[in-house]
Amino acid sequence: MRFSVLASGSTGNAVYVENDEHAFLVDVGLSGKKMEQLFAKIDRDMKKLSGILVTHEHSDHIKGLGVVARKYNVPIYANEKTWTAMDGHIGNIPVDLRFHFEMEALKSFGSLDIQSFAVSHDAADPMFYVFHEEGRKLAVITDTGYVSDRMKGHIRGADAFVFESNHDIGMLQMGRYPWSIKRRILSDVGHVSNEDAAVAMSEVIFDKPTQIYLSHLSRDNNMKDLARMSVAQTLQSCGIIAGELVHLHDTDAEEPTKLVMV
């Protein structure tokens, strides 16, 4: 199993996951043209996509969904409430490309198993995904106001995480956003901060080599260096030293990460 965080941030999100038989996108939050450019950078062909897994209906996760699905004839998987919330925002999707992937469900595509799980976000029915193959595990979790014990149960022990590290609380509090938006981000249906993300990570990491991709960083209320430093310091306070078994990686709103094996 291999993956690349194609883009991550408040302007658009997409994660690519493949094995030798299948290839999936988690969300298409950028234009079709930009998605084609990102695929070229990781030397992959969008014509070979097996499906698109939708997490929720916010525009930074579905901006290019309809265009990509129609152009490349790619099946879309989403739960019923998310399908309803997306209608009118992604154009007409042919019936043969519309599939349901309900909450807390497991779907198998050959040797690749994909588990969905609920998160806490201000969307219709938001959920993220864990990928399993031959004892290896990749967990993708962003867009949640907190990480519950149930979420931790789903992602615990992954070999690689795409994990939200959205904001620095101090930057957010002192920043230009109106209080209503700050309150939404800080709420249980908003986004997790660097420190809260690290505390949650400390409770799901096993004593083995683990790769963590810090994701969905706010353009206005975070910085890569700050997120990495904050997460590393908080992990250290929990007894986990970044750079030994656990390795932290940046993601970017414009550039994909290298395609790496889980």
Rank of each mutant, 00 (worst) to 15 (best):
R136T: 12
L214G: 06
V54N: 10
F117E: 14
E102H: 12
N13K: 03
T210G: 07
A69H: 13
S218A: 10
F24Q: 07
T84A: 13
S180C: 00
S202T: 05
D188N: 10
L112D: 13
V192Q: 09
G88D: 11
H247C: 03
T82G: 09
S50Q: 06
R98S: 03
D225V: 02
D250H: 07
I42S: 05
L259P: 10
H22Y: 08
R156H: 12
L112P: 10
Q211A: 14
V199S: 05
V28L: 06
L49I: 04
A200R: 01
G88V: 06
E57A: 07
I169V: 15
T210L: 07
I185Q: 08
S111Y: 04
G175W: 11
G51V: 01
P75L: 02
I42Y: 02
D250T: 15
I212D: 04
A7S: 15
A232P: 07
T11S: 14
N19M: 10
H167A: 08
H132T: 04
K208F: 00
S215Y: 00
E18D: 11
A14K: 07
A78K: 04
S50P: 02
T82S: 12
E134I: 12
G51L: 02
E57K: 01
N194T: 12
M1Y: 00
K182G: 07
D220S: 10
M223I: 10
E104D: 15
Q211Y: 01
S116P: 04
L186H: 06
E104M: 09
S237H: 11
T210M: 04
M201A: 15
E195N: 03
K107V: 03
I155F: 00
F99K: 15
V246W: 01
T251N: 08
F117D: 14
S50D: 11
R183C: 01
G91I: 06
T234Y: 01
T210W: 00
F161I: 08
Q233T: 11
K107M: 15
S237F: 03
K258M: 07
Q236W: 02
H132R: 09
Q233W: 01
H249W: 04
F101Y: 14
Q233D: 15
A227P: 09
E195L: 08
G243V: 10
V246N: 09
L6H: 01
Q233F: 00
Q236E: 14
L248H: 04
G91K: 05
F131R: 12
H89V: 03
F131V: 11
R44Q: 14
A232V: 10
K137D: 05
R156P: 00
P126D: 10
F161D: 10
V119I: 15
E36L: 03
D45F: 07
A124D: 14
S59Q: 13
R228Y: 10
T84W: 00
E254I: 02
T82L: 00
E255M: 07
V95H: 14
P178G: 06
Y77E: 04
V189D: 15
M223Q: 13
R219I: 08
D250L: 11
L97P: 01
V192C: 09
D159A: 05
I212P: 00
V54P: 08
M103T: 12
G110T: 07
L106K: 14
Y146R: 11
N13A: 06
